[in-house]
């Protein structure tokens, strides 16, 4: 029996009387992309925030590798190997693209509390950052301010920063959002490559992308997982069809 890299166990979260997540369990194994889909308001965002640590679960637990991370703060989970991208691209706009990646590298290596050596003269960090930027074809743009990047380039920068964390798990929140057809294609290729570095929990609205990429899919409806299975199983699942009836042709 192979043990999962990321195991979400019976996670529940209520906001007042509203049930956002109830008894959600997902296992993410090595070498897989696990897709998470669900209609708007199904509780996907709440689930991601609990995994990343922004929101604390009411009950249940999250295990990353060997370690339970349910009660760890956000930065600690990132240090332990959880790299996330945000639904709305989250970068540091006032510094260069290169510096954004360097920030991620120094976070991963625990080199933040160095006060003397200028970053611009730290060739080791810079070389490492070049590598991560190269992997997302952003090296030519590395000296411009991150605020000047296009939407698609910001997405790439986020992926590059996630790579720089050398994580155990990628947690990607709608990486295709707003990319358009051509951009989505590029990103799809990118994610397929990413999978060889670490497994991906992929939250995505773009059904075509999910069905093309995911090895397994979980469907979240009204805060509960109603089905988990391979792409074909999900396609033919009666409950899933019902949940999406009229809104999406599976």
């Amino acid at each position: 029996m192979v043990s999962p890299i990321l195991s979400i166990q019976n996670l529940s979260k209520k906001f007042g009387a509203v049930i956002a997540n109830e008894d959600v369990s997902i296992d993410l194994y090595q070498d897989e992309i696990h897709g998470l889909i669900g209609p708007n308001g199904a509780g996907k965002s709440t689930l991601i925030k609990q995994i990343s640590g922004e929101i604390k679960q009411d009950s249940g637990k999250i295990v990353l590798g060997e370690n339970e991370i349910s009660n760890q703060p956000v930065f600690q989970r990132a240090k332990m190997g959880l790299a996330r991208s945000f639904q709305v691209s989250s970068i540091i706009p006032s510094i260069t693209v290169l510096e954004n990646v360097i920030l991620a590298i120094q976070g991963n290596l625990g080199q933040t509390f160095k006060f003397w050596k200028p970053v611009s003269k730290n060739q080791e960090l810079i070389n490492a950052a070049h590598g991560y930027l190269d992997q997302v074809d952003l090296k030519l743009r590395m000296f411009i301010l991150a605020s000047e990047l296009s939407h698609g380039e910001r997405r790439k920068l986020e992926i590059s920063m996630a790579l720089a964390l050398e994580p155990k798990v990628f947690l990607l929140d709608e990486p295709m959002a707003g990319l358009g057809a051509a951009g989505s294609k590029v990103m799809t290729k990118q994610l397929a490559k990413l999978k060889s570095r670490a497994p991906i929990l992929l939250i995505e609205h773009d059904m075509d992308a999910i069905f093309a990429l995911a090895d397994r899919i979980s469907v979240l409806v009204y805060g509960r997982i109603i089905a988990t299975g391979t792409v074909d199983e999900i396609r033919s699942n009666a409950n899933v069809k019902e949940a999406y009836l009229g809104s999406e042709d599976l």
């Binding site: 990343s52 922004e54 703060p73 956000v74 930065f75 990132a78 790299a83 996330r84 945000f86 989250s90 970068i91 540091i92 706009p93 006032s94 510094i95 510096e99 360097i102 920030l103 991620a104 120094q106 976070g107 991963n108 080199q111 933040t112 509390f113 160095k114 006060f115 003397w116 050596k117 200028p118 970053v119 730290n122 960090l125 920063m161 720089a164 964390l165």
Partner: peptide, 20 residues
């Protein structure tokens, strides 16, 4: 320095800084 980069980043986007 590295510290300065983190400080100026935290000014703009503390969530991002925590996420790395």
């Amino acid at each position: 320095s590295n510290f300065g980069l983190a400080l100026q980043s935290a000014k703009q986007n503390p969530e991002r800084v925590a996420a790395v």
